[in-house]
Amino acid sequence: SKIRITWGDKTWEWDGDDEEVWKRILEWARNLGDEELWRHVKEWVDK
Rank of each mutant, 00 (worst) to 15 (best):
S1L: 15
S1F: 11
K2G: 06
K2W: 08
K2S: 09
I3P: 01
I3E: 01
I3V: 12
I3K: 03
I3T: 04
I3C: 02
I3Y: 02
I3L: 09
R4Q: 11
R4K: 15
I5D: 00
W7K: 05
W7V: 07
W7E: 01
W7S: 03
G8V: 03
G8Y: 15
G8L: 11
G8K: 07
G8W: 13
D9E: 12
D9W: 01
K10Y: 11
K10P: 01
K10C: 08
K10M: 14
T11V: 12
T11K: 03
T11G: 03
E13V: 06
W14Y: 03
W14A: 02
G16R: 09
D17E: 13
D18Q: 11
D18C: 03
D18W: 15
E19S: 11
E20I: 09
E20T: 13
E20Y: 09
E20V: 09
V21A: 06
V21Q: 05
V21Y: 03
W22F: 10
K23I: 11
K23A: 12
K23P: 08
K23G: 13
R24G: 11
I25V: 14
I25K: 00
I25D: 00
L26P: 00
L26Q: 05
L26K: 05
L26H: 02
L26N: 02
W28L: 02
W28I: 02
A29P: 00
A29F: 05
A29N: 00
A29S: 03
R30I: 10
R30W: 15
R30A: 14
R30Y: 14
N31R: 09
N31H: 10
N31E: 14
N31T: 13
N31F: 10
L32N: 11
L32Q: 15
G33Y: 06
G33E: 07
D34M: 07
E35R: 03
E35V: 04
E35I: 05
E35C: 07
E35A: 07
E36Y: 05
E36Q: 06
L37M: 06
W38T: 12
W38C: 10
R39A: 13
H40G: 12
H40W: 15
H40I: 11
H40C: 07
V41F: 05
V41P: 00
K42M: 13
K42W: 09
V45M: 14
V45F: 15
V45P: 02
D46M: 06
D46K: 08
D46W: 04
K47D: 05
